[in-house]
């Protein structure tokens, strides 16, 4: 391991905090790998050695886990991962075009990083935001309802250091390393930023209210709506 002594000390301290969350230390491996990405920007040989030593595993056992999960990077990641969803729905609704445009604009292909180390372009699989298609995740923050143009604008803002706010997320996109630390379970204090939900998330609820249906919790009592609200005809 070639970590500087103070880095190693911090890693050990953080790792023991992570292990304390679980009845069995090995459960800490995934968060610890996220943690090492916050230091190295990827799961480096040092990270493998550190996790192996800390959890009394062989290096093979650690890399077995690290190479199984797609969020763990084997090459130094850019400051920002641009993850364009290309699974059927987002891809066909325009994710393909967004990816093509970004690839052309940045001059990199899938899983490649720009020479300035700023951006890693990645084709990602469904990120559970299909009602916001096409979706782009920047460092795993939601950028909903994207177009090729809007995606390029995001890149330009990040490159220029201009404010860049995810659709549903904190006020500013954190860096890959910052997000990796958060994913290791170290609270970054940004939970209270950003909206409660985007428009598609509340479309049904709003429609129900507009139709005069019961807004269950609006009356704060939280009492149940009348069963009549359900149309038993559907049961036929």
């Amino acid at each position: 391991m070639s970590y500087a002594p103070e880095t190693l000390r911090a890693l050990k301290r953080d790792a023991s905090q992570i292990m304390a969350r679980y009845p069995s230390p090995r459960s800490a491996l995934l968060p610890m790998l996220h943690l090492t990405q916050s230091i190295d920007g990827y799961v480096s040989p040092d990270a493998i050695a550190f996790c192996a030593e800390t959890l009394d595993l062989t290096a093979s056992e650690v890399s077995a886990v690290a190479t199984f999960y797609s969020q763990f990077k084997r090459q130094p990641n850019g400051q920002y991962t641009l993850g364009v969803c290309i699974t059927s729905l987002c891809g066909l609704m325009g994710g393909d075009a967004i990816y093509e445009r970004l690839s052309e604009y940045l001059g990199v292909g899938n899983d490649q990083t720009t020479d300035d180390g700023l951006f890693t372009l990645e084709k990602i699989e469904c990120n559970a935001a299909c009602d916001y298609a096409p979706v782009m995740m920047v460092n795993w923050e939601f950028f909903d309802n994207q177009t090729p143009t809007s995606a390029v604008e995001v890149v330009e803002a990040l490159r220029a250091g201009r404010p860049c706010r995810p659709t549903r997320g904190p006020d500013q996109v954190p860096t890959f390393k910052e997000v990796s630390r958060t994913l290791a379970g170290f609270d970054d204090g940004l939970a209270n930023q950003g909206p409660s939900a985007g428009a598609p998330s509340v479309v049904g609820k709003d429609l129900a209210a507009a139709q005069g249906g019961t807004s269950v919790v609006a009356d704060a009592a939280g009492s149940a709506p009348a069963p009549g609200a359900a149309d038993k005809e559907a049961d036929k």
């Binding site: 939970a191 209270n192 909206p195 409660s196 939900a197 998330s201 509340v202 049904g204 609820k205 709003d206 429609l207 129900a208 139709q211 249906g213 019961t214 807004s215 269950v216 919790v217 609006a218 704060a220 009592a221 939280g222 009492s223 709506p225 609200a229 359900a230 149309d231 005809e233 559907a234």
Partner: peptide, 27 residues
């Protein structure tokens, strides 16, 4: 016509809906 019936989605979009305060304020 089956009517919508927001229960689990009923708090979504409310101001600071994710906080304990808001949650407790709505039952």
């Amino acid at each position: 016509m089956t009517a919508l019936m927001p229960l689990l989605t009923s708090r979504w979009g409310n101001p600071e809906s994710w906080t304990l305060k808001a949650y407790e304020a709505t039952g």
